[in-house]
Design a protein around this nucleic acid. Sequence first.
DNA 1: TAAAAGATTAAGCATGTGCTTAATTGTTAT
DNA 2: ATAACAATTAAGCACATGCTTAATCTTTTA
Lengths: 121, 121
Amino acid sequence: MPAEKRESALCDITIIHEDILRQVKKEMTDDESLFHMAETFKALSDPTRLKIINALLLSEMCVCDLAALLNMSQPAISHHLKTLRQTRLIKYRRDGKMAYYSLDDDHIKTMFDVCETHVKE
Amino acid sequence: MPAEKRESALCDITIIHEDILRQVKKEMTDDESLFHMAETFKALSDPTRLKIINALLLSEMCVCDLAALLNMSQPAISHHLKTLRQTRLIKYRRDGKMAYYSLDDDHIKTMFDVCETHVKE
DNA sequence: TAAAAGATTAAGCATGTGCTTAATTGTTAT
DNA sequence: ATAACAATTAAGCACATGCTTAATCTTTTA
């Protein structure tokens, strides 16, 4: 065994389960997907944005409705909606001056419901 | 209509859909649950923590395994594990010097899988 | 009992997030 | 056209997050 190897065994972390590491490494989701998943969860990680999602689960709403519902400024709401749009959690349609927001698909409802179950038990 | 009411209608945001607001407000999840849900999603919102979850979906692992797998320091991993523990996403058992971590229940697997589906389509 | 090793906690710093106010865009109505 | 309004974007500030290094705790083994 070369000297560097012996030294590194002394200084570095001793890896106990190399076989498991190899196997796990092989089966893990790709980095890019994990990064985007983290972004999606991050979009859901703010109480205000979660309330927006919660509201949109119940009804399509415009920005000023949401601002009134959550008692916050329009810019603040608009900022959050942008975050949710960028992760494709919500979509919107324009009708004159108003922008009506709604959920993009059913994944969000599932994640919301499962998470609610988790925290309530 | 009293003067204050008229003035507020000029200065404040005009609420377009009062009926919907009332209905939605009534049906929304309670604030405390939403707050804890946001904390749960926040725990999942970091790429490193998501990789830890991903690894634990495949196998129980100790801290030094995870540190080696993700090529990070033990304190950094330990810090993340604490966050995941606090939201009851993972649990651990001690065996001598080592702490073996695993997922706490099936909710996490569901959220992980649904989110993966979401970002991959 | 002392030393070693896995794990956790603490302190400190760089970066990110969320709000506010102000400015801008885009659409409607006078 | 121009005024009004819903919405978005920008700039700036306070606070939170994630990493590093160092110190501490806990269990094993020599």
